[in-house]
Write a protein that binds this DNA or RNA. Structure first.
Lengths: 212, 212, 212, 212
DNA sequence: GATGAATGAGCGTTCATTCAT
DNA sequence: GATGAATGAACGCTCATTCAT
C-alpha cells in the first residue's frame, strides 16, 4: 500500500513542520508571547490545522520539551556507552562534553526548559505529562551517577555517597550553562562558555577526588 | 514645608503598598497569571492608580526583582564584611550561607527570577532597567570574587584566575538551588537541600585548592 | 440492471445509516451540541461522505423532523381509520391517544421539534423544505378537523366552525405535552402526564358540546 | 452626593441599553446565531464592556427570560387583584386577557422562552438560575389556580381538583399562543389569534363547568 | 491625585464545509 | 464514490492600558 505509506509520511512531515514552526516561534518570542496564529503562519498552515495535529498549545510545548530532553538523554547514553573502556573521570568528561554539545546545538531547548513560567504549564497539561518532563529533566543525573559509582569502585573518588556527588556535578554543569546562556550576561562575566565549562568540570572532579 | 513632606510620605506609602500587593499576587499565581486587577484589588486601590505609580506590569516586576536582588547583595555584603578577619575559605562559607538563607527566606524571588518568561519582560521594560536587573543578578559574583582573590593572595587557591574561579563557585551554588527549588524535583532526587548545598560548596573549595 | 439496482439499494442503506446516526447524536446532545463529526463517527463513514448524501447539517435535521412528523401523521391516520364506525367523540379520543403514544415513544422528536432554535434552521434550509416541515406539523389539525366535522354533522358539537374547534383541541393537547415534557417541570407541577392529558381532552370535548 | 447618584443612574442606563440590544439581536437571530459582538455593536459599546456588565452570554439570556417572566407575573397579579370582586370565570377571563396582552406586546420573550435550545442553556447557567426560570415560567399556573379554587368554592366548577384544572387551562392558552405565534403558521391555520384565543378560553371554561 | 468604566486587540479553540486524492 | 486533511471565519472571553470625570 504505497499510498497509505505516502500518506503516513506526509502526515508525519506536516506534523514535524508544525513542531518546527512552534520551536522557532516559541524560541523567538517565548511561549507566552508566541501565539498559535504565529505557529500556524510560520508552518504555512491554517490555525485549524494546528489543532488537527495537536491538542493544545501546551501540548506542543510539552512535546518539544520531551523531544529535547530525550535527545539529550540519548546523547548522554551514547557518550556513556562509547566510553565503556575508559576510566571513570574520562567517562564523566565525555558525558559533560555531550551535554555541552547538546546545549550548543539546541540552545532553544534550554531557554524553553528554564525560562517557561511553570505555573500555567503545570496545570494546562496532564499531570502524567508534567511528571514525564520533570523526570526526563533528571535523567542526566542517572548517567552521571553511574560513572561516579564506577569512580568510587575504582577508588578514584573518596566521597561516600553517589547521589550527592552526581547531583553536585550535574548542578554545577547546569549552573554554568545557565549563567552563560544569555549573551548579555556572557559579556558581563567576560568569559567564554567553553573554557569555563571545562574548568568547572575539572574543579568538581578534583574536589570529589580529594579526601576530605 | 510639612505638607509637601507629608504628601511625599503618603505617596511613598501608597507606592509601597502597591508593590507589596504585587509581590503577593505575583508570588501566588506567577507573573502571567496575576492580573493588574488582582494587584489593584489586593492593594485596595483602583486599577488606574496602579498606573499612576508604575508604568506597566513589567515595570513592577522589574522593581520587585531589583528589590530582591538588592536585598541579596546586601546580605552578601554584610556576610563578607562580618567575616573580615577570617580566612578566605571561611569567608566563602559565610557568603554561601548568606545566599542559602536568602533562598530559604525568599524562595519566591527565586521563582520569579528564574521562571519568568524573559521574552516579554526584556522588551516591555526599558533596556537600562533590564541591564540593571541583569547586572544585579551578577553582583554575587563580585563578592565571591573578592574572597577568592584573598584566597589566591593567601596561597590557598592555586588556580591562576579569579573570575573563572568565582564563576564556577557561584554557578555551582545556583545550580544546586535551581535543582532543588521544586518540591517534586527534590523528592525525585531524594536529597535534602541543605546538606547537598554544603557538600557542593566544600567540593568546589577542595577542587579550587588542589593543584592541577 | 441488477448492478444499478444493487448500487441504489446500497446507497439508500448508507443514507439511512447516516440518518440513524444523526437521530442518535441529535437526540443525545441536542442539535447544536452535536457535530457533523459526531454523526459521521457514529455512522462509521467519513465526514465528507455525510456531505455526499446531505446538503448540510440543517437539511438532515429537516429530514428527521419530517420523518417524525410523517410517522405521527400515519399514526393519526391509522387511528382515524380504525375508528371508522365509532362516534365522533370516540374517534377524537383515539386520535388523541395516538398522539400521546407518539409522544411517549418518540419523545426526542418532540424536543427537536419544539426546542430547536428556529433562526438558523429557517434560513439554512430551502424555503420549500421549511414550509413542508411547518405544514406537516399541522397535519394533525386536519384529522382532528375531520372528526370534529363528523361530530357537528352528528349534532354532537354545537360550535359553528370546524377549524377553530379543531385548533382549540389540538392546541390543548400540544400545550399539555409541552407543559409536561420536562421532568423538572413535571415534578414542579406535581401531576402525571397521562391523567392530565386525558382530563384536558375530556374538558375540551365537554366544552365543545355545551351550547353557549 | 449627586455625582454618585448620577453615576449609578448612568451605569444602570448602560446596563439597560446592553440588555435592550441583546433583546433585539437575540430575537432577530435567535440566541445561538446572535453573537456577543452583535450585542455589543447594537448597544454601541465594545465587547469588553458587555462583559463588564454581564458574566456571560447565557447570563444575559437568563436575565431577559426572568425579566419577561416577571413582567408577565406582575400583569397576572394585577389582573387578578383588579378583578377582586368579580366571579371566578370573569377573573379567569381577566387573567387570560393579561396573558394575551403580554404575548402581543412582548412576542420576543415568547420566542426566546420556547425556541431556545435548552440543552446548552441548562448547563451554561447556574442550576439555581435555571430553576428560577423554570419556576417563574410556572407562576401563571398559581394565579389561575387561585381563581379556579374560587370557582370551585362558588360552585361554578364541578371538577374536584384545582391543580389539574389550572394546568389544563394554562396549557390550552399556551398551546394556542404557541400554535399562532408564527406568522406562516397563522396563515396556514387561516384564523386570527385573538378570536381563537377567546374561543379556546370559553371552551375550557365550559368544559370545567359541565358535570361529567 | 484618584477613580473605574471603557476599550479593543488578542487569546485559544471549534466546526461546518470543501476538495485533492 | 469515498475519504479525511485542510480550511478559516467565527466563537466566547480576557486584560493591560487609557482617559473622562
Amino acid at each position: 500500500m504505497p499510498t497509505r505509506a505516502r500518506h503516513g509520511r506526509e502526515k508525519e512531515e506536516r506534523r514535524q513542520s508544525i513542531l518546527q514552526a512552534a520551536r522557532e516561534v516559541f524560541f523567538e518570542n517565548g511561549f507566552y508571547r508566541a501565539t498559535v496564529d504565529d505557529v500556524a503562519g510560520r508552518a504555512k498552515v491554517s490555525k485549524g490545522t494546528v489543532y488537527l495535529y495537536f491538542e493544545s498549545k501546551e501540548t506542543i510545548l510539552a512535546l518539544l520539551l520531551l523531544e529535547g530532553l530525550n535527545e539529550l538523554v540519548e546523547n548522554l547514553e551514547d557518550a556513556y556507552a562509547a566510553a565503556k573502556t575508559l576510566s571513570a573521570d574520562e567517562r564523566l568528561r565525555r558525558l559533560s562534553r555531550a551535554y555541552l554539545s547538546f546545549f550548543e546545538e539546541k540552545p532553544d531547548y534550554f531557554r524553553l526548559l528554564t525560562a517557561t513560567d511553570r505555573g500555567r504549564f503545570q496545570d494546562s497539561v496532564e499531570p502524567s505529562v508534567y511528571q514525564e518532563v520533570l523526570s526526563a529533566s533528571l535523567k542526566g543525573l542517572d548517567w552521571v551517577g553511574m560513572a561516579i559509582q564506577q569512580g568510587i569502585d575504582e577508588g578514584l573518588f573518596h566521597c561516600c555517597d553517589v547521589r550527592p556527588a552526581a547531583s553536585i556535578l550535574w548542578a554545577t554543569l547546569n549552573g554554568v550553562l545557565d549563567l552563560m546562556k544569555h549573551p548579555l550576561r556572557r559579556e558581563m562575566v567576560g568569559l567564554e562558555l567553553e573554557p569555563l565549562y571545562q574548568a568547572a568540570l575539572e574543579t568538581v572532579l578534583q574536589g570529589l577526588q580529594s579526601r576530605e
